[in-house]
C-alpha cells in the first residue's frame, strides 16, 4: 500500500514539474511551485525525514514563492 502511494506521489511530482515548465502564464508557474513542495513534503515524511519535511514546507511555501512573487512585482511583468 505504501509503495503504491509513494509511486503515485512520484508521478505527481513529475507531472507538477512538467506543468511548471510548460505552462504559458508565469504566475501560474509560480503558484504551481508550492504544490510541488507540498508533494515533496509528503515524500520526505514517507522517507522518514520529518525535520527536512517541515523545513521544506517553510522554504517552499514561504521563501521561494515570496522570492518569485517579489521578483515579478519588481520587474513589472
Amino acid at each position: 500500500m505504501m509503495d503504491i502511494i509513494f509511486n503515485m506521489l512520484m508521478i505527481f511530482l513529475v507531472i507538477t514539474a512538467f506543468f511548471m515548465v510548460f505552462t504559458k502564464d508565469i504566475s501560474t508557474a509560480v503558484i504551481a511551485l508550492p504544490i510541488y513542495g507540498a508533494i515533496l513534503v509528503v515524500i520526505f515524511v514517507i522517507l522518514q525525514a520529518p525535520g527536512p519535511a517541515i523545513a521544506e514546507a517553510v522554504i517552499a511555501a514561504g521563501l521561494t514563492t515570496v522570492f518569485f512573487v517579489i521578483t515579478i512585482n519588481k520587474t513589472e511583468y
Binding site: 525525514a49 523545513a55 517553510v58 522554504i59 514561504g62 521563501l63
Partner: peptide
Amino acid sequence: LGAYLILFGHLAPGGGFVGGVVMAVIPI
C-alpha cells in the same frame, strides 16, 4: 525549528544549511 535542525544535524536529517535558511525566514 531552525535551532533543532542546526544542533541535531549530526544525529538526524538536516544540518547547518537547511537550519540556517529556516532561521533566515524570520527577518524575511
